[in-house]
């Protein structure tokens, strides 16, 4: 199934949370990426029918989502806010979801969903005694109980420990491969790149980028960029690199070399060749950490 957003905006008074966004989310895993406060939650809420767009339309396979409770037959939602009744047990909570969906065999569906998130063992404890990661998994189970073709997850990995993260990532990947339409929001690049093939990027409410993860990443890295390099002979390597135009500025510090590359890819291609020619061993090459917000605002500024 496909979620389509056409020129969607949402404002609260004079504050524009989502600004003229048009996108289509199709089968597979899509990551909704952007810094905190970029409007990811607002956008997800509009897709889930919990918020009216101030402008534009949100549709699921052509039918409007807003004020249409029938869409929940096809949507599974994992909200960011707690949204779990603390006084129910995990089992009761997931079973209630199955019943609310009017499934023919709610008990079996709930059992299956809890097994999927590996929550069978603590299922009879009250949710209020759960850790954050367990609550998160129970929410996922409740969202999966009716086997929806569309899954919306708002910061699903938040509060999960590495093992649980890994498990949920595998789960999302396999469901995406099985043809479900999955959208999950995150502000952690690493998380997104391990699960999603396709990303949509929001910055300050604007749709900043959209498409294949690798291509966007290349676009993002295609700008003046800082490299830190350690080698068997930093001084000689610095001298050699300075001869090329792609290395804009080279400075030598106690921790090695810092190179400001004018042309990112050009420099990255040059580096191993120069090192080999000079007979210098490369010990470490690190691109300075990408700061999402600056990368994205660069993208926005460039495109305007």
């Amino acid at each position: 199934m496909k979620i389509e957003l056409a020129q969607v905006s949402r404002w609260y008074g004079n504050v524009v949370a989502v600004n003229d966004v048009t996108m289509t989310i199709g089968p597979g895993v899509t990551g909704l990426l952007g810094p905190n406060g970029a409007g990811k939650s607002t956008l997800l809420h509009m897709m889930a029918g919990f918020l009216a767009p101030s402008n534009g339309t949100v549709t699921l396979d052509g039918t409007r989502v807003w004020k249409n409770h029938q869409v929940y037959r096809h949507i599974g939602l994992v909200p960011e806010r707690e949204g779990v009744y603390g006084f129910l047990t995990g089992w009761q909570f997931v079973l209630s979801a199955a019943r609310l969906h009017g499934l023919p065999d709610p008990v079996e569906a709930a059992r299956k969903a809890l097994a999927t998130v590996e929550m069978e063992e603590p299922k009879d404890r009250r949710v209020e005694t759960y850790s954050k990661g367990m609550r998160q998994r129970v929410k996922v189970a409740a969202a999966l109980v009716h086997d929806p073709p569309v899954l919306l997850l708002d910061e699903p990995f938040n509060g999960m420990d590495p093992r649980q993260r890994l498990h949920l990532m595998d789960l999302i990947r396999s469901m995406g491969a099985a043809g479900k339409t999955i959208l999950f929001s995150s502000h952690i690049l690493e998380e997104v790149e391990r699960v999603a093939q396709h990303i949509e990027v929001l910055v300050a409410g604007r749709h900043a980028a959209s498409g294949d993860f690798r291509e966007i990443r290349r676009l993002m890295t295609d700008r003046p960029h800082l490299f830190r390099i350690r080698s068997s002979d930093d001084r000689r390597l610095a001298a050699a690199l300075m001869l090329d135009d792609s290395a804009g500025g080279v400075s030598l510090g106690p921790d090695g070399l810092e190179v400001r590359a004018v042309e990112f890819r050009g420099f990255a291609r040059l580096l191993p060749r120069v090192a080999r020619t000079e007979g210098i061993s490369l010990h470490e090459v690190s691109p300075a950490d990408e700061d999402l917000e600056s990368v994205f605002s660069y993208l926005i500024n460039r495109s305007s």
């Binding site: 590495p162 093992r163 993260r165 890994l166 890295t221 890819r265 990255a268 291609r269 580096l271 191993p272 060749r273 090192a275 080999r276 061993s281 490369l282 010990h283 470490e284 090459v285 690190s286 691109p287």
Partner: peptide, 29 residues
Amino acid sequence: LDAIRDATADLGLCLIRLERGRQRIEDVF
């Protein structure tokens, strides 16, 4: 390390990152 350097150079690839194993907690587990 030299083999990696040479291989990228031969294949004409961009060497963006060459870092000591950034071990993740999940690996320990």
